[in-house]
């Protein structure tokens, strides 16, 4: 399954809810304001690092760039739009709005 999170973890509980439901081998893609979770040095860094150890966690590169985020949490992979489409085509989607 591909979980997508597009809300800031500081503002909404979407990521926490997603992590409570994700299963091993699931993919989690952070995009739009969801990419703030991937920023290094935030209070959610350890939570996201732990998630990256259990699931495949991606952050959409253009959204990181737009928000000026250059350092990301270890284990999170940067993904482009083509990668997003490929993940969406290969998996059942679960968007956490």
């Amino acid at each position: 399954m591909l979980h997508t999170v597009n809300k800031s973890p500081f503002d909404r509980s979407a990521l926490a809810s997603c992590l409570a439901s994700a299963q091993p081998d699931d993919h989690i893609l952070l995009f739009e304001d969801g990419v703030f979770a991937a920023k290094a040095g935030t209070k959610y860094e350890s939570m996201v690092k732990e998630a990256a150890g259990k699931y495949k966690v991606y952050a959409l590169g253009p959204d990181l760039q737009a928000r000026g985020i250059d350092a990301i949490v270890d284990g999170v992979e940067i993904c482009d739009y083509a990668g997003f489409v490929a993940l969406a085509a290969d998996n059942v989607m679960c968007p956490w709005l």
Binding site: G61, D63, Q65, A66, R67, G68, I69
Partner: peptide
């Protein structure tokens, strides 16, 4: 506070 973050580049979105 993220509004004031420098080095943003929104060309990709």
């Amino acid at each position: 506070v993220f509004d004031l973050k420098k080095d943003k580049d929104s060309s990709g979105i």
